[in-house]
Write a protein that binds this DNA or RNA. Structure first.
Lengths: 244, 244
DNA sequence: GAGTGGTCTAGACCACTAC
DNA sequence: TAGTGGTCTAGACCACTCG
């Protein structure tokens, strides 16, 4: 077991159960090192992880402080609508409306680093929450993974879970572009909203740990269904405004 | 000068000018340590920063790889509309529509950790980009910083810059909630869009490095003006879906 | 001025990749 | 099997906070 991970887990649990309330100081790094029988470097590694999760903050000379109790979600949870919904105690549903192999568009070829005209597997899914339409997901998988995607039951709650189980850790990195759009005719009909009403859009490109693009997606949420939550600390910039 | 920061800057520049193209491997950690005359620990610290910025990725056993050329923005740039616009080569403008001291609403008191009824300074600003209305910003400053805010010229491009200059590093942490909303009557008139057309909304709470809330804000962007960009790596979860 | 976090070093061993 | 990154240690010094 990795020591710094174990220590981070311990502290996260202590924060979650209120033993370390929000606003209170953590033990000093030296104390944590002594009580857990590890070196100060390992303690600092664990604290860095908690800081990146938005749970603690630090200033030179003063103790680390507990800043929050809720851990931001993992990459896997973020990519999987079904995992997220279940974590919220809600009932996810999914319906595949179409599946087609076709040549990549110019945009897809660029995002997925494909030759122009290479084949992609395009899947359109309507996802629901507690029986209500919630999100429309247009995903294009790179050709090299298309067979694996088609092998898994497309009606499965979470294709991501299945791919993970079949192929191991497929994803290592993702980029999301978040903005708002007006619902088109088709969007409106499928999601049960009026035409040109607001939708929250998240466009995503996922890659393997070695940087090879796997899939790109255009997800459109009904308003009120989700909010994206971003923690930013002075140490770790993670969110950027962009010109479209 | 901090060594790991200097090394990170060097590598960032090498990536930006193409000396280390996207997809290519970096020198080994041992090589970087030798050529820059620092220890391997310092090299790893620098590489951790670049990874958090989405510029490089790594796998055990293989070399670090260059993944992108564009650094995500710093916390300061993210909070300041004017800084962001200038960085894009565009002309920011700003107009304060109203400034009022009033008791905090229940929501504000909760977000800013204030006593019910404590005073806040509420500012409504219309921000423009190249002369066009772009964003409507409703900011509430906690009472303890209200005087400083009122002292700076409210017509200044960037109140954030001025506060930073006057008070030092005011901000240490921020949380953003991003979703979409329909424009209300007032929003629509000020931004020059039709009523109930889509707007991208970012709600923010900023705190000092020690965790004291400074301000909360509700920013509404015309669509097409900005896109939020989030990098997620397996190591560092930073974005979360949330139920509203 | 004592305490505490931020930075840096030097060296070690292990797990994984690539050839 | 050699190379490389991931983890951990022990110790040092500095910058900053706080009473």
């Amino acid at each position: 077991m990795v020591l710094h991970r174990g220590l981070a887990d311990d502290l996260r649990q202590a924060i979650a159960r209120g033993a370390l309330p929000v606003g209170s100081p953590l033990p000093t790094e030296a104390e944590l090192a002594a009580t857990h029988g590890v070196s100060r470097g390992t303690v600092r590694h664990a604290l860095t992880i908690l800081a990146a999760e938005g749970l603690i903050s630090s200033r030179q000379g003063a103790r680390h402080l507990v800043r929050g109790t809720e851990r931001t979600q993992s990459l896997a949870e973020l990519r999987s609508f079904a995992q997220w919904a279940r974590g919220q105690g809600r009932q996810p549903s999914g319906e595949v409306l179409s599946t087609v192999r076709r040549p990549a568009t110019a945009r897809e070829a660029g995002l997925l680093h494909l030759e122009p005209g290479a084949e992609v597997l395009a899947v359109l899914r309507l996802r629901g929450l507690d029986g209500e339409p919630a999100m429309l997901e247009r995903t294009s998988y790179a050709g090299w993974i298309a067979d694996a995607v088609e092998r898994v039951d497309p009606r499965a709650d979470s294709v991501t879970d299945r791919l993970h189980a079949e192929l191991g850790a497929v994803f290592g990195h993702a980029e999301h572009l978040i903005d708002a759009v007006a619902a088109g005719v088709r969007d409106a009909a499928l999601l049960g909203v009026r035409r040109s009403s607001p939708l929250l859009r998240a466009r995503r490109v996922s890659t393997t740990p070695s940087g090879r693009p796997v899939e790109c997606s255009d997800d459109r949420y009904r308003i009120g269904v989700v909010t994206f939550d971003v923690h930013t600390t002075a140490g770790g910039p993670v969110l950027a405004r962009r010109a479209p």
